[in-house]
């Protein structure tokens, strides 16, 4: 695959250290002239969903894209799938191992069944509209967190280096990821969620199998049927089929 070029109109910033690239991007949002990627060589307070700590050693990839998306919040949240697909594209372009990468709902990337990347999107807005969105991406390029660092039951973690023997710099990874995301975001904006949904489902982990989804207060077990046109996890339980917009998924 020819190396894609850096997306037009998006600035590229490489930082030695920040607290969290998402926090950094959101702080700069009011004064940023346009979309921007921020790559930090290390994070002192990297975080995941629900403020879980995200280990951020030097050599791993920690970056956030600051964007100014248009449209209703529910549509903007579908960028979760655009970034997951872009991540997979970047992995495949660099490693040439298309069969090794799967997607776990909504946007984790698994390498040989183990978590190699995590994504956290954070938006702020006003008057019922989103004004800006930070898309944070963490990739275990060289090191994965120790199992004791993970929540019990969580998918085990792995690094690209350990699983494939290949070493990539965070800058090289960013140069693969940024154009891939812009391409998927363009598809989302121009054609809607359909093509992203199809692509996502074709790479989904555990589709049709039994999984566990833990929402804020409930735990559901059932068959992972599909994702719907809003991106919801469709889980068939013995009693009903649930459309779940937010959950942690366990296998």
């Amino acid at each position: 695959m020819a190396k894609a070029s850096w997306p037009q109109g998006v600035s590229r910033h490489i930082l030695d250290e920040v607290d969290s690239t998402n926090a950094h991007a959101l702080r700069l949002a009011p004064t940023s002239g346009g979309p921007a990627w921020f790559l930090a060589k290390s994070q002192t307070a990297g975080r995941g969903r629900r403020a879980r700590a995200w280990a951020s050693p030097v050599g791993n990839f920690h970056a956030s894209l600051l964007t100014f998306p248009q449209g209703p919040p529910q549509q903007i949240a579908l960028r979760s799938f655009a970034i997951a697909l872009a991540l997979r594209d970047a992995f495949v372009a660099l490693t040439d191992l298309p069969d090794s990468f799967r997607l776990k709902w909504p946007n984790d990337v698994l390498l040989t069944g183990q978590k190699v990347a995590g994504i956290l999107l954070e938006s702020t807005g006003a008057g019922g509209r989103i004004t800006h969105l930070a898309i944070g991406v963490g990739v275990n390029l060289v090191a994965a967190p120790d199992p004791t660092f993970l929540e019990p039951g969580a998918v085990p973690a792995v690094s690209v280096l350990h699983a494939t023997g290949k070493l990539f710099s965070p800058e090289d990874f960013l140069d693969a990821l940024a154009p891939a995301f812009s391409a998927w975001e363009g598809v989302l904006v121009e054609q809607g969620f359909g093509p992203l949904r199809d692509a996502w489902l074709s790479h989904a982990a555990r589709l049709g199998e039994n999984i566990t989804a833990r929402t804020g207060k409930e735990i559901y077990q059932g068959q992972f049927e599909t994702i719907d046109l809003q991106g919801n996890l469709m889980l068939r339980t013995p009693h009903e089929t649930l459309a779940i917009p937010a959950a942690d998924v366990f296998f």
């Binding site: 949240a77 979760s80 799938f81 946007n107 956290l120 999107l121 807005g125 989103i130 991106g231 937010a246």
Partner: peptide
């Protein structure tokens, strides 16, 4: 006005909902 009063999550997007 504009201060985050809660978060609504969908698709692992954490939307900070501001006071109107």
């Amino acid at each position: 006005e504009g201060q985050t009063v809660l978060i609504i999550e969908a698709m692992k997007t954490m939307n900070h909902i501001p006071a109107h």
